[in-house]
């Protein structure tokens, strides 16, 4: 590509803790945060991987926290870390890029807890719902609060595409840069555990659920070099489609990806990060030496957030060396299928 698109920053809040260093350390130690929940469901305890409580005010200050829900706080903290550590400015915002040159794209399943809480109140007494909490029940509120906090004016997009959501946010950001629609993209995802555990109710396979926020900077290599940014990897190409037959979906997706980058590139893939690690149907498209990786056994089943978590894992994974090509392949059980090729720097 004439002007490669590169990853130049990462902000992570996960069950490993707050920050990239702790994520890198515990991921590479293969540490698992999955544990018995302090709550019970149907009088039975269950497994989950929560983000443990931390001092939010220390990171975000007091402003806005009174009305922010948990999912917004998780995203806001990850954004704060991203800008603070990778924009290299004193005020935590960008003075390299104008507000209009920045766009944010976030994949999530939405502020479900806030929606449930608000509707419970509306059912009991609609005259006494808290107006300050009303914006929190709009699905795009989390990303919008993030845009306000960081003064991002180019565009603010929320994506809710099941388990490919956060990966779709990355590929859409990649396209924005390719189209010169923005100069820098903030993309990734956020997910929260619910108090009343509807997800657990729905989760027939009883996978332990996790939560967190993973966000990234994407920009062109030329712009990244201009501001002397850290470069973690290059986004090479992607493919996305929908097919209820997951095997056919993955096969088609990879054939479209091959059409874009060629067989030689796919043959060079060394690692595949996926939320379907037990599915063997996509492995035939790669060489026998390809290694399958996932994060679910470490920080829980992240659903819409898993694509962004895979990207963060790929970046910190010490086994993966500079120049190695990795593929992230995520599928939603209903049919969304997205793949992303990354070259590590």
């Amino acid at each position: 590509m004439e002007n490669p698109i590169v990853i130049t920053g990462m902000g992570v809040v996960s069950s490993y803790g707050v920050g990239n260093d702790v994520y890198s350390k515990l991921y590479n130690e293969n540490f698992s945060t999955i544990k018995k929940s302090s709550n019970t469901f149907n009088n039975e305890s269950f497994l989950e991987a929560p983000v443990e409580s931390f001092n939010v005010e220390e990171i975000l200050g007091k402003k806005g926290l009174r009305v922010n829900d948990r999912i917004t706080i998780l995203l806001s903290v990850s954004l704060e870390l991203l800008y603070k550590n990778f924009m290299k400015t004193s005020n935590g915002s960008s003075n390299v890029y104008k507000s209009e040159e920045q766009s944010i794209l976030i994949g999530t399943s939405g502020p479900i807890q806030s929606i449930l809480d608000f509707d419970l109140q509306a059912y009991k007494d609609p005259l006494f719902v808290q107006p300050g909490f009303f914006p929190n029940i709009v699905y795009c509120s989390t990303a919008s609060y993030g845009a306000i906090r960081k003064s991002i004016k180019g565009g603010c997009i929320t994506l809710i595409n099941g388990d490919t959501s956060s990966l779709d946010a990355v590929i859409m950001g990649f396209e924005y840069l390719r189209n010169n629609s923005s100069k820098i993209i903030i993309c990734g995802g956020v997910e929260e555990l619910l108090n009343i555990h509807l997800k657990q109710n729905d989760n027939k396979s009883e996978k332990p659920l996790g939560e967190g926020a993973f966000v990234f900077f994407l920009e062109t290599l030329a712009d990244a070099k201009k501001r002397n940014a850290s470069i973690f990897g290059e986004v090479l190409e992607y493919s996305t489609l929908f097919c209820p037959d997951l095997q056919l979906g993955a096969t088609k997706n990879l054939s479209y990806l091959k059409n874009k980058v060629g067989q030689e590139m796919l043959d060079s893939v060394k690692y595949i990060f996926t939320n379907k690690p037990d599915s063997s149907y996509f492995k035939n498209d790669f060489t026998k030496n390809v290694k399958i990786k996932t994060i679910e056994d470490k920080i829980g089943f992240l659903g819409p957030l898993s694509g962004a978590a895979h990207l963060a894992s790929l970046i910190v994974d010490k086994e993966i060396l500079s120049g190695d090509i990795s593929l992230i392949l995520n599928q939603d059980k209903n049919g969304n299928c997205t793949s992303l090729l990354i070259k590590k720097y």
Partner: peptide, 29 residues
């Protein structure tokens, strides 16, 4: 809970008419 998922709107349209290109739910209020 499955029915409540916002992603199910676009997924259902795609599945019903077998429209298997990209599938996006953009809930920008």
């Amino acid at each position: 809970y499955e029915d409540f998922q916002l992603s199910s709107v676009t997924q259902t349209v795609a599945a019903k008419f077998k429209l298997f290109g990209c599938n996006m739910m953009i809930p920008n209020a």
